[in-house]
Nucleic acid binder design. Structure first.
Length: 437
RNA sequence: GCCCUCAUCGUCUAGAGGUUAGGACAGGAGAUUCUCAAUCUUCAAACCGGGGUUCGAUUCCCCGUGGGGGCGCCA
């Protein structure tokens, strides 16, 4: 059997949609699974709407997702060029074939394709047998001379020797147009696999570019891990056949196959994506996590964090890694590590100060910390416990007020780690200031 | 309107002609911790309706209903 050749064929007319990402992903997975070739083809025949900016969005998004193409723009290949705007001679040639066969006619300056009207039957790898009869002749070249999608799509699939067309279900009804054209060219047609659509999470209809969470670029900007998004997208319409959900890409590649793809549309669930992202974030090696945090701070221009010593920045981020759910929480979560004028949550203050004798506790703590060893969390913990024991109290009686004084809030990493990273001087200064206020 | 397509917890899904219909996210309740998370335990939550076929259907078939898509000189 000859090598599998699949293609992802976006048009650069807007930002990169999550549905496009999944279509690209399924094509890529199938190519990797079968040892085939993943072709990127740019469908830019709509000159009105296509732009170079959106072309870069496609390249950047695919690269970010880790979906490298084997043939296509930038990497080349034996079936180029890979932008339809550069293949006009080929289209003219193929149009001529139809013309000589008497399958075209002109009307209002446009070229129409004369359909056979025969029922078109496809044996879809996902949906089974689908039969549809095309009823109307359709335009294949616009009056301005530009060829139309259905035509160029088929010509390119023929000339690029595409073996499997994996695309969204929104093309299922169009397929009869395409098979008519394959027939007219006398060319063998590829196998089809129409994957279900992604529906918007609220309200009716499929996800569109305007919907919340629809753009890949958005996730990237927010610091989402691409591997988390990829894993999540795989699960939208496919599963490994057991109860596993978070699984390595290599394992997905090994198990992925077209008949395993679902037939029903799936609703997008950002909560599940967020959970997946957290799971991946938790297991990131320290260096990668710090790099992600730094990238994000740079993009968001978090000046105070960026101004810090790299080793200090690293300590702060590693302290936060097990506590956060997303990189985008980092600036707010770590603000008090990088500035003395951090905000104090009034509600937390009222609550903490209402119970017991917090100021006395804080004075006792300050006295102990003045001589304590700040080099390790456990030593600090022991020191605080010893102080508490003198008053017949426990660690918990000091924790809340200490946290409030030093960070202004009631959420954050453990206070011992917080103290260690901040250092004695800063911690004592904050406590003094708090007691004086 | 015509055509295509789909149908299991709120959501993503597993499942099989006979199952206590399983898992995950979200939600509830506990446990744990130094707060908040995470983690662990636990609760609640589903086979769209009607006809068939069958000893038996949520599973197979038909109809209906509901959802989604297509019907562009967009892709």
């Amino acid at each position: 059997m000859s090598q599998v050749r699949v293609r992802f064929a976006p048009s650069p007319t807007g930002f990169f949609h999550i549905g496009s990402a999944r279509t690209a992903l399924f094509n890529w997975l199938y190519a990797r699974h079968t040892g085939g070739v993943f072709v990127l083809r740019i469908e830019d025949t709509d000159q009105e709407r296509s732009t170079e900016q959106f072309l870069d969005v496609i390249y950047d998004s695919l690269t970010w997702l880790g979906l490298a193409w084997d043939e296509g723009p930038k990497v080349g290949g034996g079936f180029g060029p890979y932008r339809q705007s550069e293949r006009t001679a080929l289209y003219r040639e193929y149009l001529e074939k139809l013309r000589t066969n008497g399958r075209t006619y002109e009307q209002d300056g446009a070229v129409y394709f004369r359909i056979s009207g025969e029922p078109q039957v496809i044996d879809d790898l996902i949906r089974g047998r689908v039969e549809r009869t095309e009823e109307k002749d359709f335009v294949i070249v616009r009056s301005d001379g530009n060829p139309v999608f259905h035509f160029v799509n088929v010509v390119d699939d023929i000339t690029m020797q595409i073996t499997h067309v994996i695309r969204g279900e929104d093309h299922l009804s169009n397929t009869s147009k395409h098979t008519e054209l394959f027939q007219a060219f006398g060319a063998p047609r590829p196998a089809y696999a129409h994957i279900p659509l992604i529906l918007k999470q609220n309200g009716p209809g499929k996800m569109s570019k305007r919907d919340q969470g629809a753009l890949v670029e958005e996730y990237r900007r927010r610091g989402l891990l691409p591997e988390a998004l990829v894993n999540f997208l795989c699960l939208l319409g496919w599963n490994p056949g057991d109860n596993r959900e978070k699984l390595p890409l290599a394992e997905i590649i090994r198990l992925f196959d077209l008949p395993g793809v679902n037939q029903s549309n799936a609703r997008f669930d950002e909560k599940k994506l967020a959970h997946m992202n957290m799971a991946y974030l938790l297991e990131q090696p320290a260096d990668r996590f710090v790099a992600l945090a730094h990238d994000y701070c740079q993009r968001q221009q978090v000046a105070a964090a960026l101004a810090a010593e790299p080793s200090y920045f690293r300590e702060v981020m590693l302290l936060s890694q097990p506590k956060i759910k997303a990189v985008e929480e980092l600036p707010a979560y770590t603000a008090y590590f990088f500035a003395e004028d951090f905000p104090v949550d009034p509600k937390v203050r009222d609550k903490v100060m209402a119970k017991g004798d917090p100021k006395t506790r804080l004075r006792e703590l300050a006295a102990a910390l003045a001589t304590a060893d700040f080099s390790s969390d456990t030593i600090l913990e022991e020191a605080i416990k010893a102080t508490a024991a003198k008053s017949g109290l426990g660690f918990g009686d000091y924790q809340a007020v200490a946290r409030l004084a030093v960070s202004g809030t009631n959420v954050g990493p453990g206070i011992t780690g917080m103290f260690r990273v901040l250092g004695r001087e800063r911690v004592l200064r904050r406590i003094e200031r708090f007691l004086a206020a």
